[in-house]
Amino acid sequence: MSELVRLEAIPVYQNKAFGSIADALACPRGDLVLVQDPGSGFVRNQAYEPSLLAYDDTYQNEQGNSGVFRAHVATALAVVGRHFDRKRIVEIGCGKGQFLAAMLAAGHDAYGVDPAYEGESDRVIRSEFGPATGVRGEAIVMRHVLEHVPAPAELLRAVRDANEGGLIYIEVPCFDWILRRHAWFDLFYEHVNYFRADDFERLFGTILEAGHLFGGQYIYVVAALDSLRDPATVPAPPREAKLPPDFFAGVAACAAIARDGRPCAIWGAAAKGVMFTHHLIARGVRPACAIDINPAKQGTYLAGSGLGVLPPGDALRRLGAQPRIFVMNSNYLEEIRATGGADPDYIAVDTT
């Protein structure tokens, strides 16, 4: 298998909210070695060790505080509505239950499965998906799950067999977008797999709808589960994944900007923020703080770096006049400008 990229000793958590600097600095670390399987064409982290990760109630990936992200959820919900109306829906990996709640509010007969669920809904089974859960659905929703599991094709086969076919909606990050935008901060330990649209064309013989969401950052597909196949058996060879030679050039550019003496911070205390900070610190630059509008993250510390997370008002007062704010996701840039005001210099790192 060909090796695309190697990152050593990176924080294994990207969305875990640590209660102290010491705990954040003690976050386990692992290696990321991306390789492409010549048969399936899938790109995965060959060095992934699942035993390093344990998801609990300190794992905070809720993005619903943002109007921009709520608009994305509405778009995904519309796709589900086009294909899953009047079907019994099971969301595998429903997380905190936000998308499940949106489906229920839209009138769908929906249920969820997730071991990290924290709520009290009787429509959620707090468990890993498997035959023992007894969950059956005419339609399956699987949003941002496949990138986290070591054997995605095996999971899909288990889902197909448990449900005796049906339809499935899948949403995952787009690896082509990461490569095209030189999004070096989008390579995470938590993501075992990195998918492209044609990977799903090899996985499924029948695709009802497919496309990109969230400014191209995500792929979605609606497919027939009984058309699932071994991608290695598809006659045409998989497309070769290639890392651009200047893929990490933005790291040096951002580090140079941050060294100019003006106070700087990052806006977005999630996966991108953790990895952005990791790479800058490795080059001798440490932002003053991280900013996030999610109350569950405020007052906590980022994995690996121990960078403190503050609400916007507190952070901007601490930073002083005309700080540099590295925006982790340009999808949120205008929303962030509206919150942070005109004084800061906002730098969208996925366009730097």
Rank of each mutant, 00 (worst) to 15 (best):
I266R: 07
T351S: 12
A224Y: 04
P311I: 07
A256T: 04
G211Q: 05
T300N: 00
C264S: 14
R318E: 14
L34A: 06
V145E: 03
A24Y: 11
D31M: 04
F185E: 12
R283H: 12
L156W: 10
V33D: 05
G340T: 08
T352Y: 14
I125N: 01
A249G: 01
P235M: 07
Y117D: 07
A183D: 06
M1H: 08
D343F: 07
T133A: 11
Y59P: 00
K87H: 15
D109H: 13
D31L: 04
V349M: 15
D56E: 05
Y48R: 01
A315L: 08
C27W: 03
Q60R: 01
H144R: 05
F276V: 12
E118R: 05
P173H: 13
P152V: 13
D350H: 13
R160M: 12
W184L: 02
Y55W: 11
R29P: 04
A256N: 06
P38C: 05
P344S: 11
G313A: 15
A54W: 09
G340N: 06
V113W: 09
L302I: 02
D292N: 08
F99K: 00
Y117P: 02
G95F: 01
L25I: 03
D226F: 06
V79S: 00
R283Y: 05
G112T: 04
P11E: 13
A22G: 06
A256L: 05
P235V: 04
D57C: 02
G119T: 00
A101R: 01
A249M: 01
D246C: 01
A54I: 00
A132M: 05
H191K: 03
V159Q: 10
R88Y: 14
L187K: 00
F195E: 10
D186I: 02
F247M: 06
F69Y: 15
F188E: 10
N193F: 15
D260P: 02
W267D: 10
A162V: 09
R196Q: 12
I89S: 08
Y169Q: 09
D199M: 11
R283S: 09
N329R: 04
R202Q: 09
A253W: 01
H212W: 11
A342Y: 07
A9Y: 10
H148A: 12
D85S: 14
A24M: 02
H148W: 02
G340F: 12
R196L: 02
D109P: 10
P245F: 09
P50C: 00
V327G: 13
A271N: 11
S51C: 07
F185W: 12
H279M: 07
P323R: 07
A102G: 02
Q14H: 01
A271M: 09
A22E: 14
